[in-house]
Write a protein that binds this DNA or RNA. Structure first.
Lengths: 120, 120
DNA sequence: CCGATATTTAACTAAATGGTTAATTAACCA
DNA sequence: TGGTTAATTAACCATTTAGTTAAATATCGG
C-alpha cells in the first residue's frame, strides 16, 4: 500500500471489519475489548488490534488511556480529504441529465475521426 | 482484499496511480496505451494493465473495442455508494460547532463513572 | 504483593499485491 | 501474407497483509 495520506485513508476504508469498527465508534468512545467484542467470533483479539492499528495509522482513530483501558475515539478529519477527492467526480455518478456535459462528450468523440485519436 | 462492492471501490481508490488514471479518464475516453503513457517511466505496461483491471473489477472503468484499441471509459456509479457511506460520517469531519452534538458527547462521558462503562 | 483483566508484541504462516520480462493474441495495413 | 502495433496473459519474485497462538506488559483491586 502507498503511504500518502489519501491512500491510507481509502485503504483503511476498504475492509468491512474496519468500517464496522468506525460505525461503532461513531456512537461514542469505547475501549479496545468492547470494540472487539462483535468480531471475536470471526477473529482473534490481536487481529482486531491490527485493524485498529490501520485505522490509527490513517488518523481515523485515536486512543487515550484510562487505567488499563484504551478508549478509542473516532476522528473524522481524514474523511474530509477523501470526500473532497470524491467530490470532483460527483458529476460522474449523479444521473447525467446534464445535457451540456453529455453534449460535450459527444463532440469530443466525433472530432476524433478515423485515426483513433492519434496524431497524423 | 474483501470482495464486497464497497470494499472493492475503496480499495481501487487507495492507490495514487489508479486515482491518476481516473483523473485522466474524467477528461474522456482513452485507449490503454495512451492512458498508460504517463506511467511508463515508473512501471511497465502490464503493470498498468493490472491497475486497470482493479478499476474494472470495482466497476469504475469499462472497456470497449475499436479495432486493436480498447477505449476505456470512467463509470462513476460505484462512487455513489462510497459517497453515501462517507456521508453518514460528515458530522465527524465538519467543524463541530454543532453544540448539541458536543454537549451529548460530554454527557455520555460524564455518566460513565468509575466503572469504566461496564456493568456492575 | 498477587491474581485478574486489558492490551500489545513476537514469531510464524498462507495468501494477496505489485511489480518484472517474455510470450501470446488480435487486428491493422502495405 | 507478413510485419507492426495494441493489449493481455503467463510465469515468476519480493514484499505486505491478515490471520494465528503464545508470551509480555501494564494497571487495577483485594
Amino acid at each position: 500500500m502507498t503511504n500518502d495520506q489519501l491512500s491510507q485513508t481509502f485503504h483503511a476504508l476498504s475492509d468491512p471489519t474496519r468500517r464496522a469498527m468506525l460505525a461503532r465508534l461513531s456512537q461514542g468512545e469505547i475501549n479496545v475489548s468492547d470494540l472487539a467484542k462483535p468480531f471475536l467470533k470471526d477473529m482473534s483479539l490481536p487481529a482486531v488490534t491490527k485493524h485498529l492499528k490501520v485505522l490509527e495509522n490513517a488518523g481515523l482513530v485515536t486512543k487515550s488511556k484510562d487505567a488499563q483501558y484504551r478508549p478509542c475515539k473516532l476522528n473524522g478529519s481524514p474523511l474530509k480529504d477523501a470526500n473532497d477527492w470524491m467530490e470532483t467526480y460527483r458529476q460522474y455518478w449523479e444521473d447525467s441529465l446534464d445535457r451540456l456535459g453529455e453534449y460535450l462528450k459527444t463532440v469530443k468523440k466525433s472530432t476524433k475521426g478515423k485515426n483513433h485519436g492519434r496524431k497524423k
